[in-house]
Computed example of a mutant assay.
Amino acid sequence: MGSFDLTGRVALVTGATSGIGAATAALLAQRGAHVLVAGRDGSRGESVVAAIRAGGGSADFVAADLREARLVRQLARQVVDLGGGRADILVNNAGVYPFGPTEKAAESEVDTVYALNVKAPFHLVAELAPAMAERGHGAIVNVSTMVAAYGAAGMALYGSSKAAVELLTKAWAAEYGPRGVRVNAVRPGPVRTEGTAGMGEELGALASQAPAGRPAEPEEIAEAIAYLASDAASFVHGAVLPVDGGRTAV
C-alpha cells in the first residue's frame, strides 16, 4: 500500500505565498517534504516559510516571475540547486483568474492568462519531468478549475486556459508515466482565499449551486493535491480529480 509520507522528497509549489498554494506548501512540509515556496511576493513567501519552519517543517522561499519562459526555466534550475540536485514533486498552482465578457478582454490580458496558466506549467514540466523520469520516480499535480469542465458566461479566457492544463495533464501522463512520473490534476470549485475575497456574496452564490452548498477552504484543496503527490496515489495517472463540492456532478 502507498503512503502519504513525503519524507525526503523535494517539492516545488508555485503560487505558494497565499491561498491554495500556501496551504499545500504547509501540508506537504507537514508530511515530510522539503518545500520550495515559489511566488512573487517575498514578504508573504518568507512568512509562509517561517510558519512551516515554526511547525518543524523544512522550506525555502524562491522568488518567481512566471510570465516569461526564460524566467520559468531559470526558476526550475534554481529549484534543482536548492533541492540538492533534484525536484521530486511539482505542484503547478500559480495562475490568474480574470472573469468578464470576451469582448472586453485586452490582448495583454489574454497573453498574461495563457503565459501564467499554460506556458509556465509547460516550461516547468519540460525542465523538471525528464530528470524525474531518469530517476524513475516523480509526481506532478496541476491545479485546474471546475469551469474547465463546462461553459460559463464570463469564464471563457480563464476556463479555456485551464482546459488546456487538463489536456496537458493527460498528455504528460502518457509521456512520462511509463517512466515512473505520475501526472494528475485537481479541479477545485469556489475556494475562500485572499484572491477570491473580492467576489463577496458572488462566491457563496456560485458555491450554493453544488451539493456541498459552500465554498471550500484552501486546506481542503491541499489535501487532494497532497494525496495525488504521495505514494498513496501510486496507481493514479492522468486523472482530473474534481474537488468542487459536487458542482460538476449535477
Results as ranks from 00 to 15, higher is better:
S3L: 14
D5P: 07
T7M: 10
L12A: 06
V13A: 11
T14E: 10
G19F: 05
L27M: 12
R31Y: 07
H34C: 03
V35L: 00
D41W: 04
V48I: 06
V48K: 00
R53F: 07
R53A: 09
S58A: 15
A59C: 14
R67T: 15
R73N: 09
L75I: 04
L75M: 06
A76Q: 02
Q78H: 10
D81N: 01
D81I: 00
G84D: 04
G84Y: 04
G85C: 01
I89M: 10
A94E: 09
A94H: 03
A94Q: 07
F99M: 12
D111M: 08
V113W: 00
V113N: 00
V118Q: 08
H123T: 11
A126N: 14
E127L: 06
E127Q: 07
A129V: 10
A131K: 06
A131V: 01
E134P: 05
H137T: 11
H137N: 15
N142E: 12
S144A: 04
A152I: 08
M155Y: 12
A156M: 09
L157I: 01
S160C: 07
S161V: 00
K162G: 09
L167G: 13
L168T: 01
K170I: 02
A171C: 15
A173Q: 05
E175F: 05
E175R: 07
G180E: 12
V181P: 00
R182N: 11
N184V: 04
A185I: 08
G189K: 02
E194H: 03
G195Y: 10
G200M: 05
L206M: 15
L206H: 12
L206C: 09
A207Y: 04
P215M: 08
E219A: 15
E220M: 01
A222M: 11
E223F: 13
A224C: 06
I225M: 04
A233L: 14
V236D: 12
H237G: 08
H237S: 14
L241E: 00
L241S: 01
P242A: 15
G245D: 01
R247C: 09
T248S: 14
